[in-house]
């Protein structure tokens, strides 16, 4: 499958590059945009970004491997990020994650993101989402679910199925 960035997206990224005195600065924003469009950052996306910004592919690849938000493989359509950090943990985030993992037949003991076989869900623990006053919190794709309950989890699951 050939890797093609739509002209409109490329134009947006070209405009974005003008925000910085040095093109390299745009690399994180490129990766965000490409991941949003393709669902993940493929080796082709890394090469394309490097070519556009006049970098070596390793300069881009090292960002993909460092920053937790970038993905090197396709993830589920509904991405569930459960906050693991202290205030959410005190408010029961462990049982929230367990609820998702068990209902989706994933492995509760496994670390890192896990995706269901049908590609519908990815569930993972993430670090502090900066909403500790409404703990426990969960991010579902771009949206924050505050004071998340088991009922909220079931609602998220039925919506994503």
């Amino acid at each position: 499958m050939s890797f093609t960035v739509p002209a409109k997206l490329e134009a947006q990224l070209d405009e974005l590059t003008t925000h910085y005195p040095q093109k390299r600065s745009a690399s994180l924003m490129f990766l965000h945009a490409l991941q949003e469009h393709f669902g993940y950052v493929s080796p082709e996306a890394v090469d394309w970004t490097a070519r556009k910004l006049g970098l070596q592919p390793i300069n881009v690849q090292e960002l993909v491997t460092f920053y937790p938000m970038f993905r090197q493989q396709p993830l589920g359509k509904t991405q569930v990020k459960v906050c693991r950090t202290l205030s959410c943990s005190l408010a029961g985030s462990d049982s929230i994650r367990k609820h998702f993992v068990e209902k989706l037949g994933l492995d509760a003991h496994k670390h890192g993101p896990q995706t269901t076989a049908d590609g519908k869900f990815t569930v993972e623990f993430v670090e502090c989402l900066a909403s500790c006053g409404t703990a426990p919190v969960v991010m579902v794709n771009d949206d924050l679910v505050e004071k998340c309950t088991a009922a909220d989890c079931d609602r998220i699951l039925s919506k994503g199925r």
Binding site: H19, H32, L63, F66, Y67, P68
Partner: peptide, 22 residues
């Protein structure tokens, strides 16, 4: 400019490196 999930970017010189695309 959007970060990508790394706490260390809150440290001001780490933030600057990140803003430089590193």
């Amino acid at each position: 400019h959007r970060g990508a999930g790394a706490y260390i970017c809150g440290e001001e010189t780490g933030l600057i490196e990140s803003l430089e695309g590193k």
